[in-house]
Write a protein that binds this DNA or RNA. Sequence first.
RNA 1: CGGGGUGUAGCUCAGCUUGGUAGAGCGCUGCGUUUGGGACGCAGAGGCCCACGGUUCGAAUCCGUGCACCCCGACCA
Length: 583
Amino acid sequence: MKMSRYFLHTLREAPAEAETASHQLLLRAACIDQLMAGSYTYQPLGWRVKRKVEEIVREEMDRAGGIEIHMPALQPLDIWEQSGRADALGETLFRLTDQRDRSLALGATHEEVVTKLVADHARSYRDLPLTLYQIQTKFRDEARPRGGLVRVREFTMKDAYSFDLDEAGLDVSYDAMFEAYKRIFARCGVPVIPVEADSGAIGGKDSREFMFVTEIGEDTIVRCDTCDYAANTEKAEFRRVPSPEAAAADREEVSTPDTKTIEALTALLGVTAAQTAKAVLYMSTDPHDESAPALPLFVVVRGDMQVNEIKIRNHLHGRGLRAMTESEAERYGIVAGYASPIGIDASVRVIADVAIEHASNLVAGANKAGTHFRNVNYGRDWRVQDGDIIDCANAEAGYGCPRCDGTLGTVRGIEMGHVFRLGRIYSEVFGARVLDEAGEQRTAVMGCYGIGVERIVSASVEANHDEKGIMWPASVAPFDVHLVGLGLGRDADLAADADALYAELTAAGLQVLFDDRDDSPGVKFNDADLIGLPLRVTVSSRNQKAGVVEVQARSASEATQIARAEVVAHLRDTHAAMLAPLR
RNA sequence: CGGGGUGUAGCUCAGCUUGGUAGAGCGCUGCGUUUGGGACGCAGAGGCCCACGGUUCGAAUCCGUGCACCCCGACCA
């Protein structure tokens, strides 16, 4: 491709809305262009990258036994109501009405459609195992798009869905996808770590996210410094450092005026946060029925811990959670700021973190303004219903690893892919059943496996750039070679040779971006660094006189002179060597 | 949805406090000179100053109401 005939307008300065390196560089290198929040045009260069990423994903899905299909983005709302996810996704699901007044949705994902497809056509155990996949646009009405391509409202996702006769079969399908994912990210130059994760609105168990570790990440990952335990903070477990066990002392009231926070309490009484009990008040709601009454919930964690609302929601089987209002608290006789699990109204469900059970002589509210209790002990002073002592606190840096003696630390990360063992949630709803060898009806066991294509593009830049620009991995670079012609306009001979070299390289199977513009060397070199193709070749009259051209890898600090006659073979070999580890 | 910030040329920004009808750098067009790391000169094109109301003789500037975009949080695959 000759740059003089291409659509490639680099920016010297990054637009003000871009903060992260990858977002700035993708804009400056004319890979993308923003239309509105969370909606981007792929310019020619970016589109080539995206297609290469998709091709790698496709190759690995095929290698793992997947079969590609294409499903509609426009879907009847009914199937979302059937699966219960119209409510689960809520506002995130784009809804629209057609001219006959039928309610439709734009596919936020495709479990419903694919399960219905398999339900309608698979009949025999011989049809399984089956893994179908798609690489398609998905729509989600994100409350807050962010980070350039990281969180957008219209995006490309590879989703694969496996159908097996039983759990053992699912294990095989799941493992095949897991391996394929490792290969995909490695080939795209994106380092990832698999972490344990919550399965969210999709449902299912045993879900793992592939995380790209970066300070710009929107998720927090908890990692052990000793073993390989890693989990999303939504899900992460941890070992509670046992509080010193002491004989239960007599409970006593203590006056604590204007002491409604743990900080104020520890300052006033000279105790540590871990010696206090923190009360957090919620109302739990029915996600499927807005008119259903919300139920009061009183959560108790140790004062040094934070409540993990996802763990609470999972304990409540997916019920919604919102903060209790002051008037609601009043209605249940709760004194805000001094709430106490002792003597609480029986209609209020109390849930406590496991750390509370064995902590002795805690400071807790007395449910009386300006008053706390000292020496509160679980079991003696108050109790929850059976089963309501649970892990409901956030793991944090410095806590103990749940698997070994190590200590947990936290890093930020971006979720690049997610694999779930779904089970029979959707196959039950849509009737995806086949007859087994014995002639019995069997409901398929499903897995689902998603990858965000744009996120790979972003992360690949985030992981591969320097102060001058992008350094594309050879596997996803928009072109293989950046051919820079210097002073072609005043040397017809040189121009002819540059054209010849362009043709030779192209004929040798390399994708060449030829800078034939009438610009100064500085402009051309800086654009080449910004665009970041893996190899740069410079032709100039100086080199021509010496019978050489100059070759420099984007990652190298110096150029090498290669004889003109040998340069095509040299580049072909060098490029092949760059690509080899990414195949 | 809560908190914070920003809207002036394709991009980065000044002008707004103290109202008088629009500027710089980069980019773009033409001509000339240059040519190995973002050259130089000359001449140009390009703006409903986010929108709508209001105040005023007069509004980019003051007041009000919206909208958009960015960041933090909530939510989220």
